[in-house]
């Protein structure tokens, strides 16, 4: 297999409130000999909120981000479900609407850029599965996770809207019964936990204006994972992670449950990193608000 190379769109969270996500992503890429070129020019994707205010501006900004992957002749990978949604949605709109693409390019030309549509945009999870392959990953496992019951929490924007997901990924994830994370957990020799809330919403996007809604949705997910004997939850989305990890106490309180032990929440690359033999420091486990036991 020739060396895999991608343009990494980190998103904002991985550079601020979840530094452990960027750290662990780079750590496993090194272990797996995957080259990730950081898109330092990229701006925020708008997180679906700028889209509510100024949809055209958000298209222009996201198109600009993709331009920098295109300039490097690389496909883009994302490590945040919401970045994935907004970037992929922009690409989908521009690639299917020449008039809109021309309007966006008219603005981009003013800063010397042009959006072509030549780079694919996928979440790193699916790039790993589709390009690197779970069999190859399995071969690299040095510390099997067989002692852990791991509850996958998929996060909305990787699996819904399914039409968008299917357009950009060869993995045709079913939003009502997603399997990619479960298969990845099995490849790391962990035990994947089946539970109702694995494909449900954590409520992050209303954290500020409707904290009660957000806390209940997050609390329901954590409690469901716990009731199905999960030792740990794993998510490919840093926004889900913020809710599940940072807000865990408020969330479980909102659903009137006191946990016997806090539920550790891992980012996807942290879980992979543990199986590949990375150290807790390399994976940034010290940055979690809900402690991750050694």
């Amino acid at each position: 297999m020739s060396k895999l190379r991608y343009a990494l769109y980190t998103g904002c969270t991985a550079r601020e409130s979840t530094p452990e996500l960027l750290k662990s992503t780079l750590a496993i890429a090194k272990k797996l000999d995957i080259e990730l070129v950081l898109l330092d020019e990229a701006s925020c994707c708008g997180a679906s909120h700028l889209q509510d205010f100024d949809p055209f501006l958000s298209l222009v900004l996201n198109a600009r981000n993709i331009c920098y992957a295109e300039k490097r002749e690389l496909d883009m990978v994302t490590i945040c479900n919401t970045c994935q949604l907004n970037t992929a949605m922009t690409k989908h709109k521009l690639d299917n609407d020449p008039e809109l693409k021309a309007k966006v390019n008219e603005k981009l030309e003013e800063v010397g850029l042009v959006y072509l549509g030549t780079s694919n945009v996928r979440h790193f999870l699916y790039a790993l599965i589709e390009d690197y392959g779970l069999d190859n990953l399995r071969d690299r496992v040095v510390k099997p996770l067989s002692h852990l019951n791991i509850a996958p929490f998929y996060g909305c924007h990787n699996i819904r809207p399914s039409e968008l997901h299917h357009h950009f990924n060869r993995t045709k994830e079913n939003p009502y019964n997603p399997t990619s994370l479960d298969e990845l957990i099995e490849a790391l020799e962990g035990n994947s936990v089946d539970y109702e809330h694995k494909n449900k919403c954590c409520g992050f996007h209303v954290d500020l204006q409707a904290p009660k809604t957000s806390n209940i949705l997050t609390g329901n997910a954590i409690v469901d994972a716990l009731d199905n004997n999960a030792d740990v939850m794993v998510t490919p989305c840093p926004l889900c992670h913020l809710n599940l990890d940072v807000k865990q106490k408020a969330a479980t309180k909102a659903v009137n449950r006191e946990l016997p032990n806090p539920m550790p929440i891992l980012h996807l690359p942290q879980l992979i990193g543990l199986a590949l033999g990375c150290t807790p420091e390399e994976l940034g486990l010290q940055h979690h608000v809900t402690e991750v036991p050694a």
């Binding site: 819904r160 809207p161 449900k200 919403c201 992050f204 209303v206």
Partner: peptide, 10 residues
């Protein structure tokens, strides 16, 4: 108050 989960679209 929409959480943007896209459940309605599905």
């Amino acid at each position: 108050d929409c959480v943007k989960c896209y459940e309605c679209a599905e």
